[in-house]
């Protein structure tokens, strides 16, 4: 029996050594490389073409890509002291909620923030592109275009299934309150109970999306009649022949945020990338590739007709849009999501 025990112990040690040491080291830290994490697919390809590749050539840095952005993964790598990502694309609330803990404070001495819309940048992030959560409706179904979110809750005038994002920060709570008569300037802090009560009035007509590709698919297949979706997905669906039309009244403005992961091994290169990304040119190039508008309002992308239709940076859209309150979401994300799960699963 003794030899068995010995072999067991030996192989256990070997296996543990193998599994334990795999993640050690990470990157060189000499500034010659950088890992960029974002949301994958064509979106990240466009980020590479418009931003990372030109910057990397100029800076002499090798860029590695990873996806998708994952908050638990960031928490794990920072807590374990094995940071393998440097720059990350996140939802806007994240760098505000985790500034200094999971993401680094940025050096703004070489960044001109005057061209960003108010409230879109923070101590730990810059906006790279803008999008909006908007109501879209099936124009084949409804001759009369809905004017505002009240129509979303009016199942008499607009019968049919409504598709909404399946998490608290997805926009359904804001939309419910606006439809219930809350003034845009009094929207925050959100009255969660009132929002859920309003959503309950159309509960049997609701469907939910978790990934934005699901929402686009639903528009293309026509399996819903009204929806709350990201403007970019409505644009993509229209290119693929969907019959849905956007309503811009009270569109909820959001933006892609770029941040540096806390304890990034390539801090200098990461800061240089952020400074480059804040400029008008890469943002304009990106907007020409993807249906998201520049956050740097100095950028002058050349847009085709459909892109212009979904251009969130257009003055008439900006005028009637509502900027989501990232500070509220940074402070209340957990509480609101627990309430959302309790509501949605019952």
């Amino acid at each position: 029996m003794r030899s068995t025990t010995k072999i067991l112990a030996l192989s256990a040690t070997a296996a543990l050594a193998l599994s334990g040491c795999g993640g050690g080291g990470g990157e060189s830290g000499d500034g010659s490389q950088l890992t960029f994490a974002s949301y994958g697919s064509e979106y990240q390809d466009a980020q590479n073409d418009s931003l990372l590749t030109p910057w990397a050539e100029e800076a002499g840095v090798t860029v590695t890509n990873d996806s998708p952005t994952s908050y638990p993964r960031i928490a794990q790598m920072v807590d374990a002291g094995q940071v393998t990502w440097d720059v990350v694309d996140t939802e806007p609330f994240y760098p505000v909620a985790n500034c200094g803990t999971y993401v680094e404070e940025l050096d703004f001495s070489n960044i001109d923030t005057s061209q960003f819309p108010e409230g879109t940048w923070s101590d730990c992030s810059i906006p790279f592109a803008q999008y909006a959560t908007i109501m879209v409706y099936d124009a084949e179904q409804f001759a009369q275009a809905p004017q505002d979110f009240e129509a979303f809750f009016d199942v008499e005038a607009y019968p049919g299934t409504r598709l909404v994002p399946n998490w608290a920060g997805g926009g359904a709570l804001e939309v419910a309150l606006l439809a219930d008569g809350v003034a845009p300037e009094e929207l925050y802090p959100l009255d969660l109970d009132r929002a859920f009560a309003k959503l309950d009035t159309i509960r049997d007509h609701l469907q939910f999306w978790d990934t934005s590709s699901e929402s686009q698919q639903a528009l293309e297949d026509g399996t819903v009649d009204l929806a709350l979706v990201w403007s970019g997905r409505a644009y993509e669906a229209e290119l693929n022949g969907s019959t849905f039309e956007p309503v811009w009244q009270d569109a909820l403005l959001a933006w892609a945020s770029l941040s540096i992961i806390k304890d990034s091994p390539n801090l200098e290169a990461a800061q240089s990338l952020i400074e480059y990304a804040a400029q008008a040119e890469p943002q304009a190039r990106f907007a020409e590739r993807q249906p998201y508008s520049p956050a740097n309002l100095e950028a002058q992308p050349e847009l085709d007709e459909v892109q212009e239709k979904y251009n969130v940076a257009a003055p008439e859209v900006q005028d009637q849009a509502i900027v989501t309150d990232v500070q509220y979401w940074a402070d209340h994300n957990d509480e609101a999501n627990e309430a959302w799960t309790a509501w949605s699963t019952s």
Binding site: Y71, P72, N333, D334, E338, T345
Partner: peptide, 13 residues
């Protein structure tokens, strides 16, 4: 799924 929400949305290990 509820465990998934705890990890992904709440980062509540």
């Amino acid at each position: 799924q509820v465990i998934g929400v705890r990890v992904e949305r709440l980062v509540d290990f």
